[in-house]
């Protein structure tokens, strides 16, 4: 079932003569983990801002839970249902401490204080930051800041969460933390995840991948089919993780390497 519907979606920046997004018609399904991957300038970050009406399409439409993002009256609801985690951890931490930052979205939504206190407790436990609730942002790691942002969104009980390259400024540990959290959000809490990334390894962990190129969705594959798509990805010049490259080389030589086969194709 579609939770977000893109129809004939086009986007063009005012100062530019070329469209960044060219006629996208696609659905995001409820409960899936969707990755959007593409080089810089492929339009993936622009697309991310259309999911919750931070930008409006030049042509076509975006519907979230059946409501058009161009409808001003629906916008408040849409922003609560579609949470967004941005790239730079430092630039989305608004409040003086973790606790205040988690509360920020709820304060905006007019959630009563007692409810806020309960939810802060709940979500901070869930993303495992209850021990740093009192801390100021300059004492936190990038991963901790991103988890605070996730907690703040989670407190608003969203159905969709968009991650706009949220791991790209983190160190390997921070990246691991956030990926694990994304996976749990999707598998345990049933939240639809849309993650925009330029790391193939990350995209391979999700359910479905849109490959974007020059404003179009070039390919839409489920990750179960990755082995069949490797050749195409290589031809496109995508930097595949080593095990996939090796898998391809081994296949070319018509030999069998069981360890590798399990790694790539699963059990």
């Amino acid at each position: 079932m579609a939770i977000i519907e893109l129809r004939e979606l086009e986007y063009q920046y005012e100062e530019s003569d070329e469209k960044v997004l060219k006629g996208l018609t696609k659905d995001v399904h409820r409960g899936e983990w969707l990755s959007i991957i593409g080089a810089n300038g492929s339009g993936k970050s622009t697309l991310s801002r259309l999911f919750n009406g931070l930008s409006q399409p030049t042509e076509g439409s975006v519907h979230v839970l059946g409501k058009n993002t161009a409808d001003d009256k629906a916008l408040q609801m849409i922003r609560q249902e579609v949470g967004m985690v941005f790239q730079n951890p430092e630039h989305q931490f608004v409040a003086p401490t973790v606790r205040d930052d988690i509360a920020f979205g709820m304060e905006n939504a007019g959630v009563p204080r007692e409810v806020m206190l309960e939810r802060i407790k709940e979500v901070s436990q869930w993303v495992n930051i209850e021990h740093i609730l009192h801390m100021e942002p300059h004492r936190l790691s990038g991963g901790q800041k991103q988890r605070a942002a996730i907690a703040g969104i989670l407190a608003l009980r969203p159905q969709v969460m968009v991650f706009d390259e949220s791991t790209s400024m983190l160190d390997p540990n921070g990246r691991k933390e956030i990926l694990e959290t994304m996976s749990r959000l999707c598998r345990e809490s049933g939240i639809t995840i849309i993650s925009i990334t330029h790391y193939l390894e990350e995209a391979f962990k999700s359910d479905r991948i849109w490959f974007m190129k020059a404003g179009r969705i070039e390919k839409d594959i489920t990750t179960k089919n990755i082995p069949d798509q490797l050749e195409w990805m290589e031809a496109e010049g995508m930097p595949l993780p080593y095990k996939y490259q090796l898998y391809q080389e081994v296949k070319k030589r018509r030999i069998d390497m069981r360890t590798l086969r399990t790694m790539v194709e699963g059990e």
Binding site: Y242, L246, E249, M257, R258, T259, M263
Partner: peptide, 26 residues
């Protein structure tokens, strides 16, 4: 990691871990 895992499962030793995928396969 990948090469070490293969070594462990198969008993074959690679000369070093800087092999390109093609070299490793060969």
């Amino acid at each position: 990691q990948v090469l070490q895992q293969i070594e462990q499962d198969s008993g074959i030793r690679f000369p070093h871990y800087q092999l390109s995928p093609a070299e490793a396969a060969d």
